[in-house]
């Protein structure tokens, strides 16, 4: 958590140090707004710290810490509206926007910061990847509304596919990370565990990036986030017909609603994807996932034991009733 505390002004840092370990685990966002109390968003509830109110000076401090005292290095980031810091965490910015010829040039006079804490959940995709593998990895589309863990799942899938396991072969993975969310790259170096055989094209437009990746890095599995536009769909189909397995995500709450989106229609008409994973509301117990085959019919998730894992509760020796003694 040091990489997050580093960018926060000292007096606010002091307050955050009072949080318990469990609270840190649940912390998702820290929101700083000039002249207004700090808001902490946990999974499930939020909390307002009204004792310290960030001032203009604090905003300056955060910006200086983010850019190593060098605003000129944040030119791209200030245009995009977010900054990735070490550890893959994201700082979203809002304030006065300067434009040039109708395009956003930079955000100046930043008044709101949203520090989004990135959590990699190693192992969330174990079962899913097992179900995607049938002689080879299958083209897969993850469907789900925002905040359901599509990207988290995608990231873990990349890790598992590139590392392989006892019954899953390892493959070369290419990631086109247009919004720098999958890898959370800092100066091109991924900050999350993505496996040994993974190459990342950071902040690259998807349509172009997929072609670049295929030409230059010869990936066997290509992972892209958030397909939506016609160009994305076209490039994705090109990639699939070039013999690369594609795993991607899309916003939507069910298979049927996504199927009827006009820009995505060619994908469904040509049966590009062979597996669909529909994610629903995230709760404390984990993701609710439904696996569908190429025609949208439900298939059960394969559940296999993890190799070499101790699993005491299913062992028959501890099953006898001790109450009688």
């Amino acid at each position: 958590m040091d990489e997050i505390l580093r960018i926060i002004p000292p007096q606010i840092q002091e307050k955050l140090r009072h949080l318990t370990i469990q609270e840190w685990d649940e912390l998702q966002e820290i929101r700083l707004r000039i002249g207004r109390p700090i808001e902490l968003i946990f999974s499930g509830h939020q909390q307002v710290l009204s004792e310290v109110i960030p001032s203009e000076r604090d905003s300056q401090y955060v910006i200086n810490q983010l850019g190593d005292y060098s605003i000129y290095r944040l030119e791209d980031e200030l245009r995009e509206g977010y900054i990735t810091i070490a550890g893959g965490h994201r700082v979203g910015l809002a304030g006065k926007v300067n434009t040039e010829k109708g395009f956003v040039k930079a955000i100046r006079h930043i008044s709101s910061f949203n520090i989004r804490i990135a959590r990699e959940k190693i192992g969330v995709a174990n079962e899913v990847v097992e179900s995607l593998y049938e002689d080879c990895y299958r083209n897969t589309l993850l469907i789900g509304p925002p905040q359901t863990g599509k990207t988290t799942l995608l990231r873990d899938m990349a890790r598992i596919i590139s590392e392989g396991s006892n019954h899953l072969p390892s493959r070369k993975v290419g990631i086109i990370d247009e919004r720098s969310e999958i890898a959370g790259s800092l100066h091109g170096v991924p900050q999350h565990q993505l496996g040994l055989r993974t190459d990342v094209m950071d902040a690259c437009p998807k349509a172009e990036g997929m072609m670049m990746m295929i030409r230059s890095m010869s990936p066997e599995v290509l992972i892209v986030d958030e397909i939506g536009s016609k160009e994305d769909v076209k490039a994705l189909m090109e990639a699939v017909y070039a013999g690369v397995t594609v795993i991607s995500t899309v916003h939507g709450d069910s298979y049927d609603s996504v199927k009827h989106r006009p820009s995505l229609r060619p994908l469904f008409q040509n049966h590009v994807f062979e597996r669909y994973i529909v994610l629903n509301e995230w709760d404390r117990s984990g993701f609710t996932r439904t696996l569908l085959n190429h025609q949208g019919q439900r298939i059960p998730l394969k559940k296999r034991c993890m190799a070499n894992e101790m699993d005491r509760s299913t062992s028959p020796t501890v099953r006898y009733n001790v109450g009688r003694i």
């Binding site: 200086n64 850019g67 005292y69 060098s70 605003i71 000129y72 030119e75 930079a106």
Partner: peptide, 10 residues
């Protein structure tokens, strides 16, 4: 002004 501007401004 050091570090407070973009490249052109700096």
């Amino acid at each position: 002004t050091l570090g407070q501007h973009d490249f052109a401004g700096q």
